[in-house]
Design a protein around this nucleic acid. Sequence first.
DNA 1: GTGAAAGCGCTAACAC
DNA 2: GTGTTAGCGCTTTCAC
Lengths: 341, 341
Amino acid sequence: MVDVRMNGERTAPTLEAVAERAGVSRSTVSRVINGSPKVTPEARRAVESAIAELGYVPNLAARSLASRRSHSIALVIPEDTSRFFSDPYFAEVIEGVAEYLARSPYTLTLLVASETDPGRTSRYLQGGGVDGALVLSTHRDDRSYVALAGRIPLVFSGRPMSPHGDDAVIVDVDNAAAGRIATQVLVDRGRRNIATIAGPQDMAAGIDRLAGWREALEAAGLTPGVVEEGDFTPSGGAAAIVRLLDRDPTIDGLFVASAQMASGALEIMKQRGIVVPRDVSVTSIDNDRFAAESDPPLTTIEQPTQLQGQTIAETLVRLIEGRPIERVKILDVTLIERESV
Amino acid sequence: MVDVRMNGERTAPTLEAVAERAGVSRSTVSRVINGSPKVTPEARRAVESAIAELGYVPNLAARSLASRRSHSIALVIPEDTSRFFSDPYFAEVIEGVAEYLARSPYTLTLLVASETDPGRTSRYLQGGGVDGALVLSTHRDDRSYVALAGRIPLVFSGRPMSPHGDDAVIVDVDNAAAGRIATQVLVDRGRRNIATIAGPQDMAAGIDRLAGWREALEAAGLTPGVVEEGDFTPSGGAAAIVRLLDRDPTIDGLFVASAQMASGALEIMKQRGIVVPRDVSVTSIDNDRFAAESDPPLTTIEQPTQLQGQTIAETLVRLIEGRPIERVKILDVTLIERESV
DNA sequence: GTGAAAGCGCTAACAC
DNA sequence: GTGTTAGCGCTTTCAC
């Protein structure tokens, strides 16, 4: 039987067409496609050539309807798009995720969360289109994602801010240690009036890094210097240092919670004739281009960003497949020494 | 009847459960979900509250299997991930796409093309998981995508390099005009020995911009200066200007095919004591942070990047829905005047 | 306006 | 190892 249509519209070949052509049943075709070992070499070859001749491609919807798994996972992009793309951190996480998944049968889908209709994203995720999702934590209200965790496999990159039960799966870097180590460097350099430009206090990373700064100071028996909050961006850092110097022009040490903010702060300090590190020693977090290209280059904390990406991906896949996981995994950070202290 | 399982595993409520609870048929539920007008207000309310009470979410796989449309479109990310994220151009295109789609029933999926298995991406796209795809053109071999155009709705952002029939749908900016205008500025400033750092000659944008430069020079009766090729990145631009000055240190005008390359070139020129624009006038293409933050700020060509994103999205949606489209759409560019000429 | 019935294209027991 | 038989959860004619 030949497929003839009045309008010439071609229909994509189905698994059934492959079966007919190869002279086997649909089950056998399905087995070949899914790599089952229970197929004789002859049958396999017959099916494979039928597939090639027909240019057959399995229908994903049918497959996942029947098997109840899509073999695709989502990485939700919750921030406004422009911030997401301008922050090298996200790019590295994604690289790690993509790298891990390339070696797995899972496809990565970056889901741009609609700001206009937040429910839409969560509906999509619950609709079975993906087997699970990766959520990069943000300051935004992440309650809806936390709630989702009970319905589909979910892994958070960074601790979510919303109250989450003891069941949220989280991969985070040791932000408190990062703050502590970066501050300790300042202490070790003999700095005594150590201020900080903290990250947003509605983000876990912002809170934990500030806590680390405070801990290091207390451990050293020093009085914490002034604190100003920035939004993790260069301009936020610039604005923060202005306020900070207004409040206390006598600081001799400064811990900045992100390299982006530090680069903004450094520029203002240069304008004001403050020489780093002669007048003020500066340390930061993130080993990205902002840290390497600032003037002077920053002594900073490197987070294993790509590893974090790989780890959230691996954890999610294990979660989906029911294999054992660590519910909370904290990754270690490293000190990178440069000229800013 | 109550859903009781030995293992306590909860099953997602189906459309049928909603129908039962609302006391209507499955068809009616389906009509409500899909916004059909042929439902009485009472039936609609009954269904809606049943949906809310059950927390029902339609199964996407089943829906698209039955309706043969997924209401989701893919934006294929073909470049290596890191380049993709470091280029502000892509971010802006995506913003445009996301903005348009937010107002439509379509969901955007960024598909990270697997380098290890190129066929995988194209199989995914053919598998019916998406109704169509957006492809950002690259220097990479894009033959596989061009071929795909015959099988699923596809819109190219930028002219693909591979031979494409007269049926490829393309949205591009007027790169030739961009090159012409940027070069004309140099001519108007009285520059006579005008060189260029061209983009990669295996990318349409690189080729067209170089052609524009040449056209402007010929129209002005000037002999084209030296040409060096860069890879659109700052370091590529730096390397190119070194070679270029080696070949001809007497240039008084320079057209650079991307702001990123121009920022790299500017740095080298500064190092060598070449003062811009006193010694050499420079123009470029792209109005991004590289153009605005370079020293001096660049006179450059602004491409309507976000509009391009909106346009490719709109074109694809129209294509999917069988509405009329312009097969090739060329967007106009604008001159931005700053201090580099 | 509403319901019944017939699939969409595939996987997954189960029997052979 | 292979085929047969049921669905997966939804949309969609087609009668009513």
